[in-house]
Simulated assay, not measured.
Amino acid sequence: MRKALLIVGLLFLAIGLLWIGQGTGALPWPAASFMIGSLQWAEYGALLAAVGLILIWQSRR
């Protein structure tokens, strides 16, 4: 169970950081993405990254 929480947490964190980068325009990849420059996706990314950090923290307890 701990490994599953850690893997899912790391995945959520990575995707969340990608969405933050795309939403803020700091990471314009892929170039044709509808998420680039949309702060809504940066907010979603922040929430997903926070959930990922919580899952990582729970896997370490």
Rank of each mutant, 00 (worst) to 15 (best):
I36T: 09
A14H: 12
L48W: 00
I20Q: 14
F34G: 07
G9S: 02
S38Q: 15
I15K: 10
M35D: 05
L53W: 02
E43H: 07
R2A: 12
G45M: 04
S33K: 07
T24D: 07
M1I: 04
G25W: 06
A14T: 14
R61A: 04
W57Y: 13
I36H: 13
L47D: 04
A32R: 13
A50H: 08
L53S: 06
G52S: 09
I56F: 00
S33G: 07
L27F: 15
A50K: 02
Q58K: 11
G52L: 00
G25D: 09
A14M: 14
A26G: 05
L48M: 13
S33V: 04
E43P: 00
G23R: 04
R2H: 11
I15N: 12
L48G: 02
I20R: 10
L5K: 01
P30N: 13
L27N: 12
R61F: 04
A4G: 02
A42V: 02
I54T: 03
L5H: 03
A26N: 09
V51E: 02
G37M: 07
L6G: 05
Y44E: 04
G25F: 10
M1E: 01
R60P: 05
V8Y: 07
I15T: 12
L17N: 12
Y44C: 00
W29A: 07
G23L: 02
R2I: 12
A32C: 10
I7H: 02
M35K: 15
F34V: 12
W29V: 08
L27M: 14
A32H: 14
G45N: 04
V8S: 13
V8D: 03
L53M: 13
W41F: 14
V8C: 08
A14G: 13
K3T: 09
K3R: 11
M35T: 14
I54P: 02
L18S: 13
G23H: 02
L39E: 09
P28H: 09
A32G: 11
L47G: 11
L55G: 00
W19L: 15
A4H: 06
W29H: 04
L10K: 07
G52M: 00
W57L: 09
W29F: 14
A4S: 14
R2N: 14
L48N: 01
I56C: 03
V51H: 02
W29Y: 10
G23I: 08
A32S: 15
S33W: 05
A49G: 06
A14E: 08
R61L: 01
L27I: 13
Q40D: 10
W57A: 08
L17Q: 11
W29C: 01
V8R: 00
G25K: 07
G45D: 08
A26D: 12
G21D: 11
L11Q: 03
A50D: 04
P28N: 14
S59D: 01
L48E: 10
G37A: 11
G25T: 09
E43G: 12
L10W: 06
A26I: 05
A50Q: 01
L6T: 06
G16K: 01
V51W: 01
V8M: 12
L17G: 09
L6Y: 11
I7L: 03
W41L: 05
L55R: 02
Q22C: 05
P30Y: 08
F34P: 02
M1P: 07
